[in-house]
Design a protein around this nucleic acid. Structure first.
Lengths: 138, 138
DNA sequence: CTTTACTATGACGCGAACGTCAAAGGTCCC
DNA sequence: GGGACCTTTGACGTTCGCGTCATAGTAAAG
């Protein structure tokens, strides 16, 4: 495995070291491994997750809390699927699954609305660009 | 004209009264008319503008400053177009127009990227919903 | 084993975007 | 015209998302 320290992880992702530690602090990313001396060591996977989280935050405008909520749901669902017949604590109750389904569908609806609004804003932007261009080409 | 006070405007738009006053304070919306006793009176147009501003903020994840910048550019461009042959102070210099064009095109590019990332996130969401549904229909 | 360069943790600071409260004044209805 | 209920301005408080020290420990090179 290729372990890197926080400074390199920061350089790769473009996120500051402080922000990375902060994301860990609020549970947005998994705490990475540590050296014997308590130094954080990141894998490629860790770095990927970091990038995805930041993308989602920037692009979707989700608050970090919302994002964390989504990620924990996702993990639990995937875990549930893998360990289908096990009876671990991580197993999700049927009733809870239904709630999750409702919540996710709600999210998808909101995302859809967001994208539509973005489109109309994009149109407006294009219009404005056209107008500016026509003013320039006289 | 149908004048409404801030409380009704707040109820219509879903924005708090404090936020509306704040938006006015930082120049995000035009100061509305006032009664003799200094009470803010909003028209339908004002309410529309409020909605659009908030939409843009929520959907695009713009900071209020960025948004204000965009709105002021837009207004000045439109004004420029109307008063084409006038020599008012509001007229935009050629050089400035070019800068604006560059800035707007940059914005459009970023918007495009955002929308693409949103799409892929939407796919992920749909996947997850499918998985949950398949877990429910056993 | 020392030096040099990171790293960890804790604490305080900060700007944005409001919330909240107080004091003073405005509106409207009977 | 006198309450009951808004509104305004000002000021301070709060939360989020980090930035920025300060202090102390760690890693790697020579």
């Amino acid at each position: 495995m290729n372990w890197i320290k926080i400074d390199e992880a920061a350089k790769i992702t473009g996120i500051t070291k402080r922000a990375i530690r902060y994301y860990e602090e609020i549970g947005l990313i998994h705490p990475p491994e540590r050296s014997d001396g308590q130094v954080r060591l990141y894998t490629d996977e860790d770095v990927k997750q970091l990038k995805r989280v930041v993308d989602a935050k920037e692009v979707l405008g989700f608050s970090l809390q919302e994002l964390q909520h989504f990620l924990s749901i996702k993990e639990r669902v995937l875990e549930h699927k893998d360990q289908y017949e096990s009876t671990k604590d991580t197993t999700i109750q049927q009733s809870e699954l239904e709630e999750i389904a409702v919540g996710l569908k709600e999210q998808e609806k909101m995302l859809q609305q967001k994208m539509e609004k973005m489109k109309s804003f994009q149109e407006e932007l294009k219009d404005l660009i056209q107008k500016v261009d026509s003013l320039l080409n006289v």
